[in-house]
Design a binder for these strands. Structure first.
Length: 592
DNA sequence: AAAAGCACTTAGAAAAGCTAGA
DNA sequence: TCTAGCTTTTCTAAGTGCTTTT
């Protein structure tokens, strides 16, 4: 294969291009470079891959695993049994108690039944999946108890699969594929109050699959006896494989790993756009403050919405088809019922109380003092409206983004989130890093800066199930360490006293080593205390999303260089691969 | 100009993997 | 050597925003 160079050497070429650009970031250089590689929307010239890995076929249950209907054993047809196992596997989950889930599941399950099954099984409550469920639990238990050799065998098989299907060649690079396995069939689990929860996500067959690769590549063969839906050669897109999913009718893709050239470059570009916003954000802010006074309602709504997006890092809020998804909103789709106006609250004037479900049905709750003009405008927008009416009835994301495009090339609502997240990290790092701190304390400061961003972006997580217990464990470790420290100090004291009397070399040495011991234990104690603080503050906050998607990695790299923190303390292996471009590029004086 | 389609980024939960300390 | 408790990886849903169709 003539195209294949080693991935390493091509990486060097790629990253040195980026590095060069970062030092000479004029718009001419950048567009010239991009045009040279990819004229107008072309994403690649050569693409070759092995196609997707399909979900393993259904294995029928052993004869002794029974399903009961209305108290009586019933042997199910293979198709009906397969769908029944999906439900059985989820039996412990509270999903299966929800009425919508049960209704959707039962409806779709019945479609898979034979006509006899259909006439017998008419009530889900009479179905007893417990035996099946127990069987699966035993299976997973058995998997855990497997011998080392068996586990090793499975690991090797996975590695073989990864080696064979996990990589592709795009232009001159061998690149890792993100999700080369096709999603297996199962029951749809939406987030929050999703109207389609419990529906059957059907098995994807080769006949559903569109393959995308270059004409001059070796086209992956479909599994024996099957055909692809289509093979296309579209180099204006980055995906390798796609299919249409049956729940929402949306398209799913197989794409490259974040470490790939095509993703890294896009990521870098995203932060460059945010940095361009930095240069004109003051002007834009002045502009929207002016627009609060506009005589046009549409302009005022746009200006207030933009203020929220900027100040609170809200998402844009596209319209969604009603009844197809969970009822969640972003800025432009806020409804009157999602905010409360308080002329005065807790000693503050003009407070807006937000309470709505955002992406993934994560609750956004915040009380924010706003400028008087914003407050008056909101009162105006809410006049004569019902709770379920749109707050910004003259606005949508497309109007807003068109306006933003006029203010700055490439500016859209989401750029504000990236900009505010990254600038907040940079500011917080400056403010929180104490030069005299040791490394663990500096890392605590980093995590606190990261946390400020996560709070801004409302990145939440369910508190870990074992949180209380693990906090208690840590506390008892701290207590033990304190006792150990007290002991060490006592020993040091007596060693000193001893040395004073004896005045010989040996006892002097003892004092020194006891001193060292005290110091070491002090450090260990400090480390533990820092860990406890960090964990407590992090209880309900997820740092990963902002770290991965919103924070310009060059800020973190520069901070590490400046303070002599090993980059491994901030980014794990995967993250270092994703941010290889930034690690290579950023010097200690990098400014976002 | 509104709706539908498409391609891509962003998101938290769950599974899997790893490791320190019993 | 085992396993509890953590971190990392995997999974796939749910957004954004642009393009195409009606």
């Amino acid at each position: 294969m003539g195209y294949l160079s080693t991935s390493e050497s091509s990486c060097i070429i790629y990253y040195s291009c980026l590095a060069l650009l970062s030092r000479h970031p004029g718009p001419d250089v950048r567009s010239q470079w991009e045009e040279e590689r990819y004229p107008e929307g072309i994403k690649w010239k050569f693409l070759e891959h092995k196609g997707p890995v399909f979900a393993p076929p259904y294995e029928p249950l052993p004869e002794n695993v029974k399903f009961y209907y209305d108290g009586k054993v019933m042997k199910l047809s293979t198709k009906a049994e397969e769908v029944a196992t999906f439900f059985a596997k989820m039996l412990d989950h509270e999903y299966t108690t929800k009425e919508i889930f049960r209704k959707n599941f039962f409806k779709d399950w019945r479609k898979e039944m034979t006509s006899e099954e259909k006439s017998t099984i008419t009530n889900l409550s009479k179905c007893d999946f417990t035996h099946m469920s127990q069987y699966f639990k035993a299976q997973s238990e058995a998997r855990k108890q497997m011998s080392k050799e068996e586990k090793q065998k499975i690991k090797e098989e996975n590695e073989r699969l990864l080696k064979e299907y996990g990589y592709c060649v795009m232009d001159n690079h061998k690149e890792r594929i993100a999700n080369f396995k096709i999603e297996p069939p199962g029951l749809f689990r939406g987030r929050g109050n999703h109207p389609k929860m419990g529906m059957l996500k059907r098995r994807i067959m080769p006949e559903d699959i569109i393959i995308n690769c270059s004409k001059d590549s070796k086209i992956p063969p479909p599994p024996p006896g099957h055909k692809w839906k289509e093979v296309r050669h579209d180099n204006k897109v980055t995906w390798l494989v796609s299919w249409t999913e049956n729940i929402q009718g949306s398209i799913k893709y197989i794409m490259l790993n974040p470490s790939s050239r095509i993703k890294g470059e896009k990521d870098w570009q995203k932060y460059e756009t945010a940095r361009r916003l930095k240069k004109c954000v003051d002007k834009i802010r002045n502009q929207y403050r002016e627009d609060w006074k506009s005589k046009e309602m549409k302009v005022r709504q746009r200006a207030v919405a933009l203020y929220f997006i900027d100040k609170l890092a809200l998402r844009a809020g596209n319209e969604k088809e009603e009844g197809e998804t969970a009822d969640t909103v972003g800025c432009c789709s806020l409804r009157v019922e999602h905010i409360k106006l308080h002329p005065e609250l807790d000693g503050q004037e003009y407070v807006v109380e937000f309470d709505f479900l955002g992406k993934d049905s994560i609750r956004y709750y915040n009380k924010v003092p706003v400028e008087k003009r914003v407050f008056k405008n909101l009162q105006l927008f809410m006049e004569n409206k019902q709770p379920e009416d749109d707050l910004f009835d003259r606005l949508n994301t497309s109007i807003l983004n068109k306006h933003l495009q006029d203010l700055m090339e490439g500016l859209t609502a989401k750029v504000f989130r990236t900009y505010n997240a990254s600038i907040t990290l940079q500011q917080q790092l400056k403010e929180l890093t104490n030069p005299d701190d040791n490394i663990p304390a500096k890392i605590l400061s980093y995590n606190r800066a990261n946390r400020a961003v996560a709070i801004l972006c409302n990145h939440q997580r369910a508190p870990p199930k074992t949180f209380e217990k693990s906090m208690m464990n840590l506390q008892s470790k701290i207590d033990a360490k304190k006792e150990q420290l007290a002991d060490a100090r006592r020993e040091l004291k007596s060693a000193k006293a001893d040395a004073k009397v004896r005045r010989d070399e040996k006892s002097k040495k003892t004092v020194e080593s006891k001193k060292k011991a005290v110091q070491r234990i002090e450090e260990q104690l400090m480390k533990l205390e820092v860990q406890a603080t960090d964990r407590e503050e992090n209880k309900q906050i997820a740092l990963g999303t902002s770290k991965l998607n919103y924070l310009d990695p060059r800020i973190s790299v520069a901070w590490c260089k400046k303070w002599g923190i090993p980059i491994e303390k901030i980014y794990n292996k995967t993250q270092r691969e994703k941010f290889a471009w930034a690690i290579d590029m950023a010097e200690e004086d990098y400014e976002f």
